[in-house]
Design a protein around this nucleic acid. Structure first.
Lengths: 266, 266
DNA sequence: CAGTGGTCTAGACCACTGG
DNA sequence: CAGTGGTCTAGACCACTGA
């Protein structure tokens, strides 16, 4: 009975992680058949239902495809398949083998009346950063974090009207990691994408001509109890950002889907 | 043992559909608790695993949220939750209580060399339509359908250089329905979104000013065997189209997501 | 505490695929 | 035909929540 490296979490998740490692390391190539359910049941000493749930995770991430009567295969084009981007710009960019950095633009407190329009019903902290990839301006990120949440994150505190020192120094402060360290975990999020014309400020920061198109991404993240954790507004130059989604029709009906977002070089 | 209207497909899908009907009809309001797993097991005479799978479908569509120790609840903001849009513009618009229509723009045969760049390795038929909502131009849809697939769909045949009559007459021809009738079923699709500036032709058709932003959606659909069924390119005015995604973190790890796309009035 | 969902098992029967 | 995935059952134990 083989056991896995990661000793935490549900069995199906560990099994899925093992398989993901096989794929992402290249030991399993696109088009290769994954071990059959029966084989994995034996190897891991688990029941078939557990293996099926693990495969379901891979399916929903677009890493695998199943064909009844044939087998489960590593999906083609398994590149750029890291979802959850806005929250972990840092990790996402690193995963593509490129170098993320950032420039601090602004941090401020906002009164309740200024954020209530966003669905945030308490005062909040707003943080604005320019995100760069390999030194090239890539996106402008505005994060609105409710005061009660921001209070738990040292970097988001404002002392005597001045931003926290680490925020200015660290070129790789990750809000996502800060959330995790403070014990906040994102349960679900809503995202809305729009195309619009770059304003002068956007264009200047992103080093593009005013009048070009940008993609605007608006995101609200919640924890398991439905408490708002943060609102992020991202602005990306239209040419350098694409949103890529992989849609899978559920076996039952026609709809259920999966999507991952990822910026790419054009 | 209560039975459901729809007598086809897996049990969990029928159960999920029943619950969806309860929600979409308004009999269950956002925030309401759904029946517990135990209750549904009894009502429908199914095992718990089946109920769990049905709930999973609702979760992935963003229609419900579960909280351990508490219950399963109808999600807030369960509006605009119809995914799979590009394929069924017609149905999607109707679901929002508005009136879809279309204007035929063009249909033509393309040689293999003209479509191979799109990943289609045989001659294809290209169909171009202007889609309208309540009579207002909404999108330009270009569909590239491989010849072997198009041959099975009467409306996509070209006789003596002329489009099929029904294509010109029917203001609600649905490519999605035609696929289904011809026995083609979409298994998965990839979608890429970009922001760009409207060209003159785009702007004219969509009745917007040249130089405004548009959202360009590129989509490739495949059947279960990985055969390319169609490529769709959609162009939407930036103001009137938004792409809305609902992301759900999987219970196991941090990533797995769900997304639905939906156009909205701005 | 009772009730909820989260996970897991060890079977079962079926539908589909390919040789 | 043997092997695959698709579905389903009838249990089990646990973790979490709220009263």
């Amino acid at each position: 009975m083989r056991r896995t490296v990661k000793a935490t979490g549900p069995l199906y998740a560990r099994l899925a992680q093992d398989l993901k490692n096989e794929i992402q390391s290249g030991r399993l190539q696109p088009g290769d058949m994954l071990p059959s359910e029966a084989a994995l049941c034996q190897q891991y000493g688990v029941s078939r239902g557990t293996v099926v749930r693990a495969f379901d995770m891979l399916l929903r991430e677009g890493l695998a495809q199943r064909r009844q009567g044939v087998g489960t295969f590593v999906a083609r084009q398994s590149l750029h398949r890291k979802p959850g981007y806005l929250l972990s710009f840092t990790a996402g960019v690193r995963n593509q083998g490129r170098q993320p950095s950032q420039q601090f633009l602004d941090i401020a407190r906002l009164a309740r009346r200024d954020v209530i329009q966003f669905g945030c019903d308490e005062p909040a902290v707003i943080l604005e950063r320019l995100r760069l990839v390999d030194g090239i301006p890539w996106a402008i990120h505005k994060h609105i974090v409710p005061a009660s949440v921001a209070a738990q994150i040292e970097e988001l505190t404002i002392q005597a009207g001045k931003p926290h020192a680490r925020l200015l120094e660290e070129s790789n402060f990750s809000l996502f990691e800060a959330f995790a360290e403070a014990g906040f975990s994102v349960d679900h999020a809503d995202e809305i994408l729009r195309a619009r014309i770059a304003g002068e400020r956007d264009a200047g920061l992103l080093q593009m001509a005013a009048g070009e198109a940008v993609m605007q991404v608006h995101r609200k993240s919640f924890d398991a109890k439905g408490r708002l954790l943060e609102i992020t507004e991202g602005v990306y130059s239209g040419g350098s950002y694409t949103y890529e989604a992989h849609l899978v029709s559920s076996r039952g009906l026609t709809e259920v889907l999966f999507a991952g977002d990822t910026p790419r070089q054009t």
